[in-house]
Design a binder for these strands. Structure first.
Lengths: 205, 205
DNA sequence: TCATTAATGTAGCGCGCACTCCATTATTGG
DNA sequence: CCAATAATGGAGTGCGCGCTACATTAATGA
């Protein structure tokens, strides 16, 4: 008789996943070959497919980790102060801004989501939950007078989430400093939602 | 003797390119097969490769059209009034927001740019020129007092371009109305750059 | 120690891909 | 009308891919 050692199994699995994430980030979903992942992870293809059914499953596992982290984090936020809570949500959504594989993975996710409906559903679900959380906080903030009342919460939420996603895509630009740009992103959101004392000069509509 | 008919040649070429753009948008760069492009364009593979050296060249041609349109448009903008000029730049950058192939092409461009340095260079060049234009207008606007002075023009320009790009990626979301969201994008930029009379409640930094 | 089976590497397979070859057709100038 | 050759379609090709078959090794329980 022989049983699986779940500890060793999990370690090996995580190592492969980590290598795979790097390759996916560098080459995109289609561009990442299983051979390259094997080489990076230092295993044979037999081992790779002993741990994962196929390439798609591997990618699913990689992004699922990230998505559950975000959604779980959203649940845990204290919503008594909407301004502070929104700040925390932004922190969550930009948590992996400094991660070197983040921009590549974001691009790969966009790539796969456009033609894999099931995968798209999971990604959209995460974006949806983030949007809902932001929209609710915008409503609260408008109620307390912290945010300008003339903003549609759902529309604003969509844009705010889109902007954080945009941040991931440019986070490997030269001169991109995580802390600085995260602060700038907060400024953008704050000015977008913030109570404007006057209509301001702004841009003509 | 027989000479090429440049007119017919151009028409056919454009038709193939149009079909290719649809397929690239639907399936991504790697996912788009030359067979699918042939079928969509209603031509044989011999014809396809009679007009284009390879798949990559086709994609280059598609995006080159768009890029030159933007860069040429940027040159032509009247910069006397920075606020109005910036508005026009935003209009240029969001000109194809309603184009159904735009989000897919944007995704495909991101995909290819991550592993094709030469292609990346042309895309970056367009972004760079847009950034430079925006940054210059921010400087002008700050000089005239239209924009808040405490914004780094280069950083702001990067984010503004990134936000317009983000708009393209979400422009096929359900409920996305081009005119409405373009106006919203302008509101975001206006509030971001706009002179803030007071520091405002905003989000804590 | 031994039987059992999980874990692993490797050779290779089938398939779908970008692209080519070539015979045929259409279109031009003379 | 007649070359000459551009234009075209489609069969075909080589190759790189995801994935599998399988032999071998290592780890476990009895």
């Amino acid at each position: 008789m022989r049983t699986v050692n779940p500890e060793k199994h999990a370690v090996r699995r995580a190592a492969i996943l980590s290598a795979a994430a790097e390759v996916f980030a560098e080459r995109g979903y289609d561009g990442a070959t299983t051979a390259a992942i094997c080489k990076r992870a230092g295993v044979g293809s037999g081992t790779l497919f002993h741990y994962f059914a196929d390439k798609r499953t591997m990618f699913l596992a990689i992004v699922a980790d990230d998505l559950t982290t975000v959604t779980a984090g959203l649940e845990r936020i204290d919503r008594t102060d909407p301004v502070r809570a929104l700040d925390e949500v932004l922190g969550l959504l930009t948590a992996d801004l400094g991660d070197p594989v983040a921009p590549g993975l974001a691009a790969a996710m966009i790539q796969l989501a456009r033609r894999d409906p099931e995968f798209a559903a999971t990604v959209i679900a995460k974006d949806e939950s983030a949007r809902r959380a932001v929209a609710a906080l915008v409503v609260d903030g408008q109620a307390t007078g912290a945010f300008a009342p003339d903003t549609d919460p759902d529309r604003a939420a969509r844009w705010i989430v889109a902007i954080t996603d945009a941040g991931h895509l440019i986070s490997d630009d030269p001169g991109f400093d995580t802390a600085t740009e995260r602060a700038e992103l907060r400024r953008i959101v704050a000015s977008y939602l913030g109570r404007r004392r006057t209509p301001g000069p702004g841009l003509p509509r």
